[in-house]
Design a protein around this nucleic acid. Structure first.
Lengths: 143, 143
DNA sequence: TCGCCTATTGAAAAACTTTTACAATAAGGA
DNA sequence: TCCTTATTGTAAAAGTTTTTCAATAGGCGA
């Protein structure tokens, strides 16, 4: 669904900062931190405040409109959420994030962990880091 | 291997704060944040500074003596590292962390992700959250 | 379209976390 | 025990996230 409709239906307004943040996330190829979003908007001449960026990201995340991934250095980046699964592999070179579908294998792992630890699994944190095809080729060329 | 021997062999000294931090981590059942370690040491009358706690944790982690887990609220906790694998499931109620062995299933997932995304997988972030057996029983009793 | 209500914003400050600088201290080999 | 220097503690800085509150603007109803 359109994010603006979803926001409206949930009782939120379509404000300028919210439009700007979503537009920036949608136009970017890599996950962006709150500060990076703020600085890129500023560089574009927009004057959304950093506080609003934080608030907007929190709202969008709570509504499932955006996903969060850990960058290779540990900071938290945001990117538009797609419909289904939300597991990402992040390129350690160019930071590009790509979704992968690992539901089935993960289900197996969840069951194994539950029987092994007797915990009831409620949630998980799963993310891969690696080198994307483009960056693999670049390093081959320069070698 | 004994952590003190390992430190010495790597050219580091066995200082008071390092002893205190390791002792505290070894005596605790749950992962501890830097601040929590500092405050618990202070409560015990030890006078290690917060700066030293940070430095010590960084050193221990770089030597593989301790592992890091994300707490349910998102903060980073430390706990002594065991020999082999280092994946944890953390109880959302009592914060206890238990290791699990998911190497095989994870290998399968890694291969699937590589063929699906064409990335070369270098590293990963895997952690589960749930409710431990004890806390499951407690909630049953109170229900 | 206009006006009103109030959700939302921006600025400033506060709270919190982590890092840096540097003189004083103490670990451990000679 | 002495000497060298790794390590510490204090203080300050840097960085990040949250809170406060008056001003603004989104969007519904008239």
């Amino acid at each position: 669904m359109d994010w603006q409709k979803l926001l409206t239906q949930a009782g939120y307004r379509i404000s300028k900062p919210r439009k700007q943040v979503m537009q920036l996330l949608e136009s970017t190829q890599t996950p962006q931190t709150a500060l990076a979003i703020y600085e890129k908007l500023k560089a574009q001449g927009e004057r959304a405040s950093l506080v609003s960026v934080y608030r907007t990201l929190e709202l969008f995340a709570s509504l499932g409109l955006i996903s969060m991934v850990y960058e290779p250095e540990g900071s938290l980046g945001y990117l538009p959420a797609s419909a289904g699964h939300h597991h990402y592999i992040v390129c350690q070179v160019c930071h590009r994030a790509v979704e992968f579908n690992g539901t089935e294998d993960l289900d197996g792992l969840v069951h194994q962990v539950e029987s092994q630890t007797l915990f009831a699994v409620k949630d998980h944190l799963l993310q891969f880091f690696g080198v994307c095809p483009k960056c693999q080729n670049k390093s081959k060329e320069s070698a």
